[in-house]
């Protein structure tokens, strides 16, 4: 469905230091620097897959989505989406895809969302019967019946986002790019959006690529993740495998009926991550989990016990730290190797 080979997107950016002197100098001499937003990534995505793009700010996730949706022309590399070259922005391609951006909107600001829906119906040439069926479905699933007649500007962020999603799905896109779709939403609205997106993927077999800084979005929606860092692909695989690779240890969370001394936790094995009133969290090697649980149940007033993976936020931070250390080591080695005589 989606094939990306050696994708690069570089920008030439004007650069000058602050201050009047630098401003005057830039009148006659402008210096530029090349920003490597994406620097040679390759991957394939099968039809119907749900894939999460992860990475720190400025990693190149959104740039990649914009290239895939035809908004940006790649500097290098080959990209196809369902047989189309996105940068050509053919009509057939644009009718198959949609990019939903949490920080950009397509709803007409001063008109009710119903007007944008009608506009999209005409632009995407959606047959009347299909439009009615889709709208009935979207209105019911997203619970937006009372909203679509109010001016967009009068809707709350969550209400607006639900209408944005409805506007994006009127033509039933086969490929859905979601860039931070839950940004700024409260927890319950995030959950609503996740459920809806997952149902859409399952019902229509749509391929879905998601970027989000909310790890709960990724964990709930994406069996596969692609991690991009400084424009490079640093991981492509299942979320579980990523957690296993970075943090193979498990978290044993103990809820206790009374406060216990830290000394009583030591014999359980593993490392104490937190120990607060009534709760202790231990980090334990996977093979030692059973023994730790047995010892805890035997020696402590345990009222509840759970075994979890390390939080995804921590896993990602560790992965990014690893990548950074590797980059710095490579940069450190590069000058030395250059000085070796031929």
């Amino acid at each position: 469905m989606i094939s990306v080979r050696g994708l690069r997107k570089h920008y030439k950016v004007h650069k000058r230091p602050p201050g009047l002197k630098a401003a005057l100098r830039s009148l006659v001499h402008r210096s530029y620097t090349t920003v490597k937003a994406v620097d040679g990534i390759s991957f394939d995505i099968r039809p119907g897959e749900r894939v999460g793009f992860l990475g720190p700010n400025g990693a190149g996730k959104t740039t990649t989505l914009k290239v895939l949706s035809g908004l940006l022309h790649p500097s290098e590399g080959e990209v196809t989406v369902d047989g189309h070259v996105p940068r050509l922005r053919e009509e057939a391609f644009l009718k198959k895809i949609m990019l939903v951006m949490g920080q950009k909107q397509q709803l007409l600001w001063d008109l009710p969302p119903a007007e944008t829906f009608e506009l999209n119906r005409a632009i995407y040439d959606v047959p009347a019967a299909q439009y009615k069926q889709t709208m009935d479905e979207l209105i019911s699933l997203l619970d937006i019946g009372d909203l679509i007649g109010k001016p967009t500007r009068q809707l709350s962020l969550g209400e607006r986002m639900k209408c944005e999603l409805a506007a994006a799905l009127i033509h039933r896109p086969r490929v859905l790019f979601l860039d931070e779709p839950t940004i700024g939403l409260d927890v319950s609205m995030q959950a609503t959006m996740r459920t809806f997106i997952k149902d859409y993927n399952e019902k229509y077999g749509a391929t879905l690529i998601l970027t989000s800084h909310y790890m709960d979005d990724v964990a709930a929606l994406c069996p596969r993740v692609i991690v991009i860092d400084k424009g490079l692909l640093s991981y492509d695989g299942s979320l579980d495998a990523l957690v296993q690779r970075i943090r193979p240890e498990k978290r044993v969370v103990l809820r206790l009926s009374e406060q216990v001394d830290a000394a009583r936790l030591a014999p359980l094995g593993g490392k104490v991550v937190t120990h607060e009133a009534g709760t202790a969290v231990l980090q334990v090697r996977q093979e030692a989990v059973n023994a730790t649980i047995s010892r805890a149940l035997a020696g402590l007033p345990v009222t509840d016990l759970t075994v979890e993976n390390a939080p995804l936020e921590e896993v990602m931070s560790e992965l990014f730290a690893e990548n950074k250390a590797r980059r710095e080591a490579a940069a450190h080695e590069a000058p030395a190797s250059e000085s070796v005589p031929a």
Partner: peptide, 25 residues
């Protein structure tokens, strides 16, 4: 979009455009 499809969408574009013009009167 083909010219034919664009012209088919045009009445709706004009209708929505008029609604905007009224909103910005």
């Amino acid at each position: 979009m083909s010219f034919r499809n664009t012209m088919r969408a045009m009445p709706t574009l004009l209708k929505v455009g008029f609604a905007e013009a009224v909103a910005y009167r």
